[in-house]
């Protein structure tokens, strides 16, 4: 098998739950896959601090369950996709709702292609509205909470 094919097999095993490539040590690959997830969770937490903080002691478990069979799309999109999924099942912590709303106000993201800056938009949040003009986000209504 070619180097390219073997490398692709390995990456799929480590990031997407594909079978362990022939001849490789499954124990060591399992350890490597968990180390990758831990590092990735840290990177997403840095980009989405309120998502991680809102989940507190559950953060690493929730992230690992969600990310275990999903290769990374970068920490911005990983955190975004996870936040939307949690929101969809009413499991997104309140402070993470605000963080998501702020990011959604600044960027347009279809969940499949890289996010693009939003020039103009208005979004409702729990205690007011977020107005985006030329990439700047303003809070209308109660402004003490963002």
């Amino acid at each position: 098998m070619s180097l390219a094919a073997r490398q692709a097999e390995l990456v799929a095993a480590l990031t997407a739950g594909a079978p362990v490539p022939a001849g490789m040590d499954p124990v060591r690959l399992g350890i490597a896959a968990r180390a990758l997830l831990y590092k990735r969770a840290g990177e997403v937490a840095r980009r989405w601090p309120l998502l991680a903080a809102g989940l507190g002691p559950d953060w690493h478990r929730v992230f690992a369950e969600w990310a275990g069979a999903r290769p990374t799309a970068g920490s911005l999109r990983d955190g975004w996709d996870l936040a939307r999924e949690l929101q969809g099942r009413a499991a997104l912590p309140e402070i993470a709702e605000r963080e998501l709303a702020l990011v959604e106000a600044r960027w347009r993201y279809d969940g499949r292609t890289p996010p693009r800056p939003r020039r103009l938009g208005i979004r409702r949040v729990a205690d007011g509205r977020l107005l985006t003009i030329s990439g700047r986000v303003m809070v209308i209504g109660r402004s003490d909470s963002l």
Partner: peptide
């Protein structure tokens, strides 16, 4: 760090 269009998210060793 990537193969088959998938990012590994970390440095991986070569054969």
């Amino acid at each position: 760090v990537r193969a088959g269009g998938v990012e590994a998210g970390h440095l991986l060793p070569l054969p």
